[in-house]
């Protein structure tokens, strides 16, 4: 009798996600580093732009650039746990579907980015933003959530591509930045009018563009995901 035990995709995703989040909570390694880099970049921008407060286009850029830089740190380390001690080979020996690993990594990175923003957005409101933050918070949260999903999806794919690369820390940023440009354009266009002093209503086509880009990346990821984590 050879009844092969299999694990369903959602169960495997949850198991890997739980493992990754538990590891991060225990080591508390990645999130502080991402937070410090994002805050540092924000301070650099304050002096580079020579502005005590920012609004509109500058405000959107001053929030998005630190977020992108911080996400690069997270993406570079996305498969770090699996690459130690032949973790990917061990995962492939398990009855879990190969593509579930990528899906778990995308959700994990999204959670880390959301956690980062819980600190970063209030800091941005206090330190740099000219107009009031609270009245525009719902629009800001919506756009940032869509951006997180997009960055996490493309980050998962890029980190998967770079598994086994000798100079991963060089390859990941140069791959992520061009791929992130459409997402950053959409987020910037969505946020700039919202972060003006007399905040305008959110132009819905830009969040829609972000959502479409995230969906396209997710579809591409679902096609190529199983090939990324082969032995």
């Amino acid at each position: 009798m050879s009844a092969q035990t299999t694990i369903s995709g959602p169960r495997a995703v949850l198991a890997v996600l739980r493992k990754d989040l538990r590891l991060e909570l225990r080591s508390f390694e990645l999130l502080p580093a991402m937070g410090l880099l994002a805050l540092g970049t924000m301070i650099v921008l304050r002096f580079a732009l020579d502005q005590e407060t920012v609004e509109g286009d500058l405000a959107a850029g001053s929030l998005l650039v630190p977020l992108l830089f911080a996400s690069l740190l997270g993406i570079s380390r996305l498969f770090a746990g699996e690459e130690r001690d032949a973790g990917i080979q061990q995962y492939l020996l398990s009855p879990a579907p190969a593509g579930a690993l990528l899906a778990a990594k995308v959700l994990g990175l999204t959670a880390v980015l959301v956690a980062l923003e819980i600190v970063l957005v209030p800091a941005f409101g206090l330190l740099l933003l000219g107009p009031e933050l609270l009245p525009v918070l719902p629009e800001l949260v919506l756009v940032l959530l869509l951006l997180d999903l997009t960055l996490a999806t493309l980050g998962g794919i890029v980190a998967g591509i770079a598994i086994g690369a000798r100079s991963r820390e060089l390859i990941v940023p140069i791959l992520v930045v061009p791929l992130a440009i459409p997402a950053l354009i959409a987020a910037q266009q969505a946020l700039a009018p919202v972060l003006e002093p007399g905040a305008e209503a959110l132009a819905w086509r830009w969040p829609a563009v972000l959502a479409i880009y995230a969906v396209v990346l997710a579809l591409v990821g679902s096609v190529v995901g199983e090939y990324l984590v082969e032995d």
Partner: peptide, 28 residues
Amino acid sequence: LYCTYQPLRLSIDDPRRQARAASVFAVV
């Protein structure tokens, strides 16, 4: 974006792994 294609290939020694990563890049 496509300027990163050759550096990506060059950074992976194993020819099979290199071809797979490059193909995923090409699709994305």
